[in-house]
C-alpha cells in the first residue's frame, strides 16, 4: 500500500489561501461555530490562540454576526432563501464593520453553506438580486461577496488557514509526530458538496494530511477512510436515531484497526466528526465491549499540542471518551503526572 497518496491531479485541487507572508494574509475575519461552542468550545479557544499568538494574525469577529443557521437548514427548519440572506448579512457585517476581506469559518458546514450560497449567486443572477434586495430591506446592509481563494468568489475553512501556514507552525513545534501513525478524516461538508473547494480534492484530500506531514507523522490509509462519521444532523441530534452515528463510527474504526492496529490518531476538521468519532467509541466500548482507543483530535488541538499548549487547559482534551494520555506519552508530551486522570480533567 502506498502511503504518500500523491495523485497527479492534486495540482488541479489546489486552492489559493493567503499565508501570513502573502499580502492580506495577516488580517482575517472569522465566523464562529454553533456546534463547537456547544459541544467542544475549547477547540475554537486553542485555534484562536495559535492564529493570534503563533501566527500573529489580526483575527477579527463582530459581536453581531450570527450562526449561518445551516444546522437548521440541513435540519429542515429554514429555506434556501433564508440561508442566502443570513450568509449575505454575515458577509456584510464582516466587511462593513470589521473591514476584512478574507473570511474563514470554524465549522465545515458553515464553510459549505457559505460556499453553496456563493455558488447559487454565481449561477442564478435572480437569486443574487433577491438576496441583495431582501438584505437591504431587512437590515439596510449592502450586499458583498468575499473573494478569498484565488480572487474568485469564495470563503475558506479555518483548517485551510492552518494548512496554508503549516510550515511556519511546524517550525515552531516543540514536539514531533515522528514515528506516529496517523490518518485524516475530513468533514463531509468540507469536501463532498464542493470537491473543487477542498484542498487536494475530496478523494485524497490534502488539508489535514499536509498538516500531519508537516509535523512528521506517518500517514496511513484504510478502506473506510472516506465513509462519513455518522454525525448526520438529525441522526446525531436525537438520541433515538443515534445508532446511525454509532454504526458509522464502528464501521470506520473497525476498518482502521484491521488495517493499522497501531494507528491511534485520527485528525479531523469538522466539529461533528471531532465529537462523535470519539464519543461513539465510548458507546461501542459499553455496548459491544470493543475498544479501539483511537484519539480523535481536531487540527487546532493537535497543532496546540505540538506547539506546547497544555493538553487539558488549552487544548481541552478533558472530555474525550478515549483517554488521550497514551497518545501524549507516545509523542512525548508532558503533563502533570502527580495528578490522577480525573484530577487533570476536573480542576474544580
Amino acid at each position: 500500500m502506498k502511503v504518500t497518496r500523491e495523485n497527479i491531479i492534486w495540482e488541479s485541487h489546489q486552492k489559493h489561501v493567503p499565508t501570513i507572508d502573502d499580502e492580506g494574509g495577516k488580517l482575517w475575519g472569522c465566523f464562529r461555530s454553533c456546534f463547537l461552542q456547544s459541544a467542544a468550545p475549547y477547540t475554537e479557544g486553542v485555534a484562536y490562540k495559535i492564529l493570534k499568538n503563533d501566527l500573529g494574525i489580526d483575527l477579527r469577529e463582530a459581536a453581531g454576526h450570527t450562526s449561518c443557521g445551516a444546522i437548521g437548514y440541513h435540519g429542515d427548519v429554514t429555506t434556501i432563501e433564508t440561508q442566502m440572506v443570513v450568509a449575505a448579512r454575515n458577509f456584510a457585517v464582516a466587511h462593513e464593520e470589521l473591514g476584512v476581506d478574507n473570511l474563514f469559518s470554524f465549522c465545515v458546514t458553515s464553510f459549505a453553506n457559505y460556499t453553496e450560497m456563493i455558488h447559487l449567486w454565481e449561477e442564478e443572477p435572480e437569486l443574487r438580486e433577491y438576496t441583495a434586495k431582501i438584505l437591504k430591506e431587512t437590515t439596510g446592509r449592502e450586499f458583498w461577496i468575499p473573494r478569498v481563494s484565488g480572487n474568485r468568489p469564495s470563503v475558506v475553512h479555518a483548517s485551510d488557514v492552518f494548512y496554508a501556514n503549516r510550515h511556519k507552525l511546524a517550525q515552531k513545534a516543540k514536539y514531533s509526530l515522528k514515528g506516529i501513525k496517523a490518518v485524516d478524516h475530513i468533514g463531509c461538508h468540507y469536501g463532498k458538496i464542493f470537491p473543487g473547494e477542498a484542498m487536494g480534492g475530496v478523494e485524497f484530500p490534502q488539508v489535514l494530511v499536509g498538516l500531519l506531514e508537516a509535523f512528521g507523522a506517518e500517514i496511513v490509509d484504510y478502506p473506510e477512510r472516506r465513509h462519513c462519521c455518522g454525525m448526520g444532523f438529525r441522526q446525531c441530534a436525537f438520541p433515538e436515531n443515534r445508532d446511525y452515528t454509532a454504526s458509522s463510527t464502528y464501521k470506520k474504526l473497525a476498518s482502521l484497526k484491521q488495517a493499522h492496529p497501531d494507528c491511534n490518531l485520527i485528525l479531523t476538521n469538522c466539529p461533528g466528526c471531532t465529537v462523535f468519532l470519539d464519543a461513539e467509541q465510548g458507546t461501542i466500548k459499553e455496548v459491544l465491549e470493543e475498544e479501539f482507543n483511537v484519539s480523535v483530535l481536531d487540527y487546532a488541538q493537535l497543532t496546540g499540542l505540538m506547539l506546547g499548549y497544555d493538553p487539558f487547559k488549552d487544548c481541552g482534551l478533558n472530555a474525550k471518551a478515549v483517554e488521550v494520555e497514551p497518545l501524549l506519552d507516545k509523542i512525548g508530551i508532558p503533563y502533570d503526572k502527580s495528578k490522577t486522570a480525573e484530577q487533570r480533567r476536573r480542576p474544580f
Binding site: 440541513h74 459549505a112 463531509c188 461538508h189 469536501g191 463532498k192 458538496i193 470537491p195 475530496v202 472516506r226 465513509h227 462519513c228 455518522g230 454525525m231 448526520g232 444532523f233 438529525r234 441522526q235 446511525y244
Partner: peptide, 9 residues
C-alpha cells in the same frame, strides 16, 4: 438521510 452529501461528488 444524514445530509453528508456522500452521494453528490
Amino acid at each position: 438521510c444524514g445530509q453528508c452529501y456522500s452521494c453528490k461528488p
